[in-house]
Nucleic acid binder design. Structure first.
Lengths: 183, 183
DNA sequence: CTCTTCGAGTTGAAGGCTCAACTTTTCGGA
DNA sequence: TCCGAAAAGTTGAGCCTTCAACTCGAAGAG
């Protein structure tokens, strides 16, 4: 017999709509970033995380965690970012298995150049369409889902730089962070 | 000077959370489908749309539209689905530029085999986490975004099979649809 | 009737992602 | 001390998607 908990009509409509919204939204974000800054959104996120880190430097594994990237993905990505001259890797003395990833000045510049367009896109595709109440609801729903999907109350973040942090207007935040953490 | 409409703290948190939720959610959906049914979610969607079509057959361009796929992507995808024996292509007599895509019995069987696991996953990652009010809010937000991002009141769907339609529990719907539209 | 334009669909290259090994180093015991 | 298990990263293969041509047929203007 059939144990499947099928979706009722409402749930189906919701799922479909949700799916459509997200495809459309992320397609635009991705395309804008790709066309104007030659980088996929995943790379943008990596640069953002590095820009927010003390000394713009992070261990590979930590970077992978904070940027929601698999180890493998991050390795490939950083290899490419290194080719572009935006990131540098250096061995870690404490733990000889480890590697440091450091955001170069060129990488910072690339990020600052990419940020305005990206933020504008995010605003256009998301926030401009929603009322304040809807925005609040979206926030609540997203938080619930993140909690649910990580099945920890918040996140498996450890000591420094807890996870859910600034993202979009990276450059601004990053500049501040960089200034704050001391160049 | 700086014309960028930067995100304020709240907006940033919302965007970040939204991003995280979606990465986590779709990663799970994708992985489940890939591991248990050997197909990416995009292919699943294609099979669903075909299963819902009269005679389980659709023109390539229409299929591309309803499955939110670029022409190119669809061509590649259908090529693969054809290799798997799940879809067949045949030239269209009315318009000799055109091609029909038809869901084979094997394809239908594959879809029916994949559906329960997929639906269960969707329920687990999404609906199980949300209250009815949150689900309703999600639906509303998604609808707004879809409207916003297609900048048409609803969708550029033409004659038959308007766009936002059933998806997840495809097999059930499909069986019904197939029965209804007459085999 | 012909020319030009547009639409349908395909193709191949380039790039990113996943998965499954695999290496090296660290850590926790016995 | 020595050994097995776990952690950090990397690598290559395979797959999917995008982008930019490109082919072929349909449609409308002159």
């Amino acid at each position: 017999m059939d144990h499947t908990r099928w979706l009722d009509d409402d749930e189906q409509q919701t799922w479909r709509s949700f799916l459509t919204a997200h495809r459309l939204l992320f397609e635009r974000v991705e395309r804008e970033l790709q066309q104007t800054s030659r980088m996929p959104h995943a790379y943008y996120e990596i640069l953002v995380r590095l820009s927010e880190a003390p000394d713009r430097t992070l261990r590979m594994s930590r970077l992978a965690d904070t940027s929601l990237s698999s180890r493998s993905r991050l390795s490939h990505a950083v290899a490419r970012l290194e080719q572009a001259g935006w990131v540098e890797r250096s061995p870690c003395e404490d733990d000889r298995r480890g590697q440091w990833a450091h955001l170069t000045d060129a990488g910072m510049a690339a990020l600052e150049a990419a940020a305005p367009g990206h933020v504008e896109t995010v605003r256009q595709v998301l926030f401009d369409a929603l009322t304040p109440a809807q925005t609040a609801a979206l926030r609540e729903i997203s938080d619930v889902l993140v909690g649910h999907l990580t099945d920890g109350p918040v996140w498996p973040a450890a000591d420094d730089s807890a996870c859910p942090q600034a993202e979009a207007d990276a450059a601004a935040t990053a500049a501040a962070a960089a200034a704050a953490t001391g160049a």
